[in-house]
Write a protein that binds this DNA or RNA. Structure first.
Lengths: 153, 153
DNA sequence: CGCAATTAGCTTGCACACAATGTAATCGCA
DNA sequence: TGCGATTACATTGTGTGCAAGCTAATTGCG
């Protein structure tokens, strides 16, 4: 029950509260939940919103590149993008000079949605309640963790 | 390009790389993926591992309390715990003095698994590659974000 | 005491995530 | 040029997450 005997040197115990991994997992879900009502008003889920972020930057992107940007595989992206297509936000078409590639392109509706989404990052950023310095530090640490655990299988 | 304020002061743009939320989401999945092979050797998924962490601390816990600890609802926990039961790691039984409550209890196998799981936090902790100070700071910032976005509406 | 409200849990439906497998198009090299 | 490897994507199956609706047990209030 006390923290005097706290594992080796860095809190590597089996206590739930010691786990950075759990803090990460819980924070990620809490933030996604915070997004939910805002994105629901736009007709998007959170992963769909991330795909739209990529498209709002580039307009036409192969599925492969979307997967590289978001670190998601085809099993996730294929049905997700088909739902975006059903919603009229994107168009899917094979690249003429390489029929293996599927290009995803914003429709007019997809472009218009960008305007309605402009305030979303600010709303969430405010809700996180971090100072600019904390915001940058958190982002830096998370990128470091991602890079480290992704390296060397 | 845009006459409206772009929120450059804290990265509140629509650029994917600016989003703390994406860094969080990507880091969480990357860490979970790093756990996968380690936990597979124990016959656990990552959320199942979290439930076991709670049980390794308390031995017998109502489902409600597991949900409170992990911030997961019954829709997630009911089938998950039934799978743990099928694997022989836990037992489920109604509390005699309040038949609404389901108590989850470790079996012998479930207790033995704790020994085999002892090295998991260390392995993951090492893979994250953070200094003790960074580890604590990351955990602190993540808890702050979780608390802030969970508060109010 | 009687009954409405609350509580704990279950079930269904939808949308991710990811592993494993399949397929068509393209590439590369003898 | 022929053909085996590679690439880009789709499909299937399993396991979460979460909302919404449901049941049964308990509580609380007149």
């Amino acid at each position: 029950m006390d923290s005097t005997e706290n594992g080796t040197e860095q809190g590597f115990s089996l206590l739930l509260d010691d786990q950075l991994c759990f803090a990460l997992y819980a924070a990620s879900r809490a933030v996604t939940n915070r997004y939910r009502p805002l994105l629901e008003a736009l007709g998007l889920t959170y992963p769909q919103y991330l795909v739209m972020l990529v498209l709002w930057e580039h307009d036409t992107v192969p599925i492969k590149d979307i997967g590289a940007a978001l670190q998601l595989d085809y099993g996730t992206l294929t049905p997700l993008i088909k739902r975006l297509e059903s919603a009229g936000l994107v168009r899917r078409e094979r690249r003429p000079d390489d029929e293996r590639t599927v290009l995803v392109t914003l429709t007019g509706q997809g472009q218009e949605l960008r305007e309605r989404a402009r305030t979303v990052p600010t709303d969430i950023g405010d809700a996180m309640g971090l100072s600019p310095a904390q915001f940058d530090q958190a982002r830096r640490l998370l990128r470091l963790v991602t890079a480290n655990v992704s390296a060397s299988g």
